[in-house]
């Protein structure tokens, strides 16, 4: 920050701390009803995940009374959303399952972003062979149907949290790379990049400190959409029996386990479906709201 203090710094307004800027960004979303609905839905699930043990009366893996319908009372036990075929409280499993989703989905998205951003700035800033090779690799990965890739890779290497994160990173990073590359190609001829080069800044510093922050707008919208898509992916893998190993609750896995009983006990599958759909909807609405705001500017 020494550059800022060179020559009369009294006029330069102080940059507010990050939490103030984050709050201002959320306040901006208030302009769009759609975006606010999205924020509310996502905030609801974040709170549920945070306070899951306080909000539920039973252990998610405890077998209490099987095949109870919603609002059932068995002795002293009350089941808000009923129980599944093994007698586990569905609300407890959904609440605790939100922790799984809200841990792995952002983790996988973040990991994909780190790889994708590094690939993208490298290809866009360095051009030449870096660009050629990285773009070819991405084209090949992107041409493959994603779920086919996930199913084959995860079934072969085994279903675990780590493998799911790795597979999602592998399949999503090329898409992120393309966006970043496009943005960097647009930014790399700006004056401040030339200034940084003249100052003798290292290429990596230029890429990550000068270029990346200026490319953040479209990336934030994409991140919301991608987070929603990764949430769907984790759900799909659980649904296909390739999710996290039982017995710990996972929304997709809950649907898979109760699939055969859906005809008689629809509540066992419908509530996890509502949970995952609402979370994804919330993320997509935030993305839509952000896009609308960025268009208004």
């Amino acid at each position: 920050m020494t550059e800022q203090t060179v020559g009369g710094d009294t006029d330069i307004p102080k940059r507010p701390p990050w939490y103030v800027r984050a709050w201002n960004a959320i306040k901006l979303l208030r302009e769009t009803t759609v975006g606010m609905i999205g924020v509310a839905i996502v905030a609801f699930w974040l709170l549920v995940a945070m306070f899951a043990p306080l909000l539920t009366a039973y252990d998610p893996n405890a077998t209490i009374a099987p095949f109870q319908k919603p609002f059932a009372t068995v002795g002293e036990n009350f089941f808000l959303l009923g129980t599944d075929h093994l007698g586990r409280d569905i609300w407890s499993r959904i609440a605790h399952g939100s922790r799984t989703v809200l841990f792995y989905a952002p983790l996988a998205t973040l990991s994909a972003y780190i790889v994708g951003i590094l690939m993208g700035v490298l290809a866009g800033y360095r051009r030449g062979w870096y660009d050629e090779i990285l773009s070819r690799i991405s084209d090949i990965i992107l041409s493959f149907p994603v779920l086919v890739l996930y199913v084959i890779v995860i079934a072969t290497f085994g279903a675990s949290g780590t493998n799911i994160v790795i597979a999602i990173t592998f399949a999503s990073a090329p898409g992120i790379m393309r966006i970043v590359r496009g943005l960097v190609l647009d930014l790399r001829n700006r004056d401040y990049i030339a200034a940084a080069q003249t100052r003798g800044e290292s290429p990596w510093r230029i890429m990550l400190v000068e270029l990346l922050p200026n490319a953040r707008g479209p990336l934030i919208v994409d991140a919301c959409l991608r987070l929603g898509y990764v949430t769907i992916t984790i759900g799909v893998l659980g649904f296909l029996g390739l999710g996290l190993p039982p017995p710990d609750p996972d929304w997709g896995g809950m649907i898979n386990e109760s699939r055969n009983m859906a005809q008689v006990f629809p509540h066992m599958v419908i509530f996890p479906c509502i949970a995952i759909s609402s979370l994804v909807l919330g993320l997509n609405l935030i993305a839509d709201g952000l896009r609308e705001i960025s268009l208004n500017d």
Partner: peptide, 24 residues
């Protein structure tokens, strides 16, 4: 908005919802 809502519902969830309405 309709298209955002329908693309937010993953295929496995829409199969369940559709089955719940038309089958069960």
């Amino acid at each position: 908005i309709t298209s955002i809502v329908t693309t937010s519902i993953p295929e496995f969830a829409s199969t369940v919802f559709l089955a719940a309405i038309f089958v069960f």
